[in-house]
Nucleic acid binder design. Sequence first.
DNA 1: CTGTATCCGATGGGATACTG
DNA 2: CAGTATCCCATCGGATACAG
Lengths: 113, 113
Amino acid sequence: MNTYCKFETALDILIGKWKPVILLRLLNHGTMRFSELQKSIPDITKKMLTQQLRELEYHDIVHREVYKEIPPRVEYSITEYGQRMTPLLQAMNDWGVNHIAHLTELYGEERAE
Amino acid sequence: MNTYCKFETALDILIGKWKPVILLRLLNHGTMRFSELQKSIPDITKKMLTQQLRELEYHDIVHREVYKEIPPRVEYSITEYGQRMTPLLQAMNDWGVNHIAHLTELYGEERAE
DNA sequence: CTGTATCCGATGGGATACTG
DNA sequence: CAGTATCCCATCGGATACAG
């Protein structure tokens, strides 16, 4: 009866201006250095990149590997546990693609977003 | 290759402090009046309830039916199209339930949220 | 290279009062 | 009853400078 109580939890973890694009990069590209991520997401600041990565790390979605070198090297990747949410992301993506089409049908091309 | 581009779209529609609980109410209870919704969500203000409902209405998730009576009566319900997102909400919910368990495993009872 | 610290403007959401 | 209008504050995110 009281199902759907926790779908807000999934939401919380994905919320954040840059989390979707960060996840996308890491899923498609695999392991990436901090600077690679930054270059691949031109408008993000270091502050935001760090912050969002730390939140994903807390939730065990992203792994942070620090190499004690000079200059420092830090690599980010999706954890094994994080991989397990790809079906959900895929489902959300499919729904999103369909919904954009639905909005276009309702309101026309211009407001399809 | 470039999959997962639009899962952000699904996110956008569900984002908003009260959207999850509003959806939950309408899904479990069916059609509800404005005042019923407000009573069932004690801390929400009229402003927020109106605003969030309008956004859901724009996306064709919620239907708004106005009865021209004195005093006015307005009933809200999930559209047929909106019903079609229940599998997605269910999937998100399942993931959320599992994730809370995962966090508990990682950090213990206290920080499971 | 990989961050942290600080400031600061934009936005989201709450409290309250008013209206058809 | 079902909203709208206004004001206000807290949080989020951007710009910039500094540090290990």
